[in-house]
Design a binder for these strands. Structure first.
Lengths: 117, 117
DNA sequence: TTAATAGTTAAGTGAATGCTTCAGCAATCG
DNA sequence: CGATTGCTGAAGCATTCACTTAACTATTAA
């Protein structure tokens, strides 16, 4: 089973628009901290704090060379979260299908007396 | 484009294990508030507060009949969040592919310096 | 009518969140 | 060299979070 606390931290990381935008930026390729910060109207410090969170939950890896820290998206990091959707959408859709079948059956029985619940 | 605040609230809703478990429970079918609360070791009040949040972000619909409130999962509610993953995984994978191609070319140049079409 | 059930609402608490400013510090440029 | 760049770390602050308890309302059961 998927680990709860991992999902907690992944979904939490993605629940902030700035962090999502940072992730989206990193899809196009690695970036330095300042490059990452540039589009946003917040202090560099705030960005670094978002970055720490992204790194802690494994979405991102960083490496410092000289005075520049380069940030890379971690391949497969989104997998755990995406998997949650896939699994549950599947179950959900199967249930809706069965429900549809039941309703169809009920339709057919409509003329006959119905069972009480 | 997907709306930011909607994604914020969806991901936030899913970032809590209790709320995810409630959603998972609702996949199996509708439930009353007390039924929903039963597996958890928190007050009914806490569950009601989670429920409000789930309802505000559109994951869930409720209807009160007599003194019982019945909670239903809202079909397609997870779509917005799931879509975010699909879109970005796609872009990310395309980028990794291109990156792979580039690296292959570099490989070939290194081992045998020849032109590539 | 009384009692139990199902849920609602308000107020409060401690911890976490997202941000700021400011004071650094090491790498690099002029 | 000294100045600038790129980042780091700590402290503080307002807000939100997840939760509690407790008092309350409305519906149903005995």
């Amino acid at each position: 089973m998927l680990q709860q606390s991992k999902l907690d931290s992944l979904f939490h990381a993605l629940s902030d628009g700035t962090r999502r935008a940072m992730v989206e930026r990193l899809i196009t390729g690695p970036a330095s901290v300042s490059e990452l910060a540039e589009p946003f109207d917040v202090s560099l410090s705030a960005i670094v704090q978002h970055l720490q969170l992204l790194e802690e939950c494994g979405l991102v890896k960083t490496a410092k060379e000289g005075r520049v820290r380069t940030v890379n998206l971690q391949p497969g990091a989104l997998a755990a979260a995406e998997k949650w959707f896939q699994q549950h959408r599947e179950r959900w859709e199967r249930r809706l299908d069965r429900l549809g079948d039941l309703l169809d059956e009920e339709d057919e029985k409509e003329t006959k007396p119905r069972r009480k619940s």
